[in-house]
Design a protein around this nucleic acid. Structure first.
Lengths: 195, 195
DNA sequence: ACCATATCTGAACGGATGTTCAGATAGAAG
DNA sequence: CTTCTATCTGAACATCCGTTCAGATATGGT
């Protein structure tokens, strides 16, 4: 046997990335073999190498694409308004964007140590760019006397860490709606940052 | 060759746990082989099985011991005082305890998915017990009208998530002292929880 | 109908994996 | 000094790993 009926790179390629994403998120990069990914797609392991030069690149591209999606989606947000509004929009954006991509978020966060140093540096760079967006808001609010934090960098990391906590417990159709979750977190973030 | 000079279970046992802890934290459970752990200790892989029935148990016991240490250390804390004081003490305790054990914290958090279902349930049970300690403080403060959070369970998770963020950036000898870090986080937590 | 090319198989590669165990030596006890 | 036991080695087991590649078949264009 060789090429199979209906096989096409436009179909197999996305399916491979999708399967890798799911399996990496569930079991971790090191615990997932190329054969398991291939099995999920219904293909032999060798076929994966038409779509990725190696396993490491498969992981890296998933992470890089996710971070670039995050940055470009955040870039499309309205950037005007006073710092308080900007912070509120950031909270809403962060929660909603990340809750829509649980697997990507999990991987981008847990699999950093499985990246080569070069790949790690690139992902960290993108992450820092995103954090800088929030810190700019906090600094502007600090300057305007609206916010009162001891250290904008630490506050940035604290807010993001707090918001990321949503991912560990929120399930669609649970006790609280998305709007309610957003309101609850916004209340805590606002109070924590405000004078 | 067989038994080596100076070999003793009181020495080898702790060294194995220590090496496993360090390697699991650095590279992840799945990426660390029994041979690598043994190599770190200066012993052959087979010797590890005098100290653990298998690799899974090695991971599990590291996590369980850590969680039990956490619970027993927290249990020794002074529990009296008004909720505001109790919350301040919780923040200080959590930051200091966890910063002293970065490897254990990392593992207890990142390697949950590599536990068997039974082991996972046991660790999660211990984690919930710890969270319950914080939630009791928040509920008591809520009852007394000191705190004003929309949901004590979510607030509990939010506070812990925020505090855990310290672990990602704090390095001893850095820009801020431990006391300063504690003060900065306490300021944010207090404001976020207070009416 | 034919051809070029895109796509996949199946086998193979060297090496790593967790675990077991008989046998060997060191330390402790008498 | 002898005996018992704690401790470790070294080899072996079956299985899995990431990756490569020649060859086979399907697809799309002419």
């Amino acid at each position: 046997m060789a090429r199979t009926q209906g096989s096409h790179s436009d179909i197999t390629g996305p399916r491979i990335r999708q399967a890798a994403l799911r399996l990496f998120a569930r079991h971790g990069y090191a615990a997932v073999s190329m054969r398991k990914i291939a099995g999920e797609v219904g293909v032999q392991a060798g076929a994966l190498y038409n779509y990725t030069p190696d396993k490491q690149s498969l992981l890296f591209r998933l992470m890089r694409d996710h971070m670039q999606d995050l940055l470009s989606a955040y870039g499309e947000q309205k950037q005007t308004g006073d710092p308080q509004d900007a912070l509120r929009r950031f909270v809403g954006f962060h929660i909603r964007f990340h809750l829509q991509r649980p697997d990507e978020v999990f991987i981008a966060y847990m699999e950093l140590r499985n990246l080569t140093p070069e790949n790690f540096a690139e992902i960290e760079d993108l992450r820092r760019k995103y954090e800088d967006g929030l810190e700019a808001i906090l600094r502007e609010g600090q300057r305007a006397g609206i916010f009162a934090v001891a250290d904008t960098k630490i506050a940035t990391l604290a807010v993001i860490a707090m918001l990321n906590g949503v991912m560990t417990w929120y399930r669609a159709g649970g006790r609280l709606s998305l709007d309610e979750v957003e309101a609850v977190y916004w209340d805590m973030v606002r109070k924590a940052m405000t004078a």
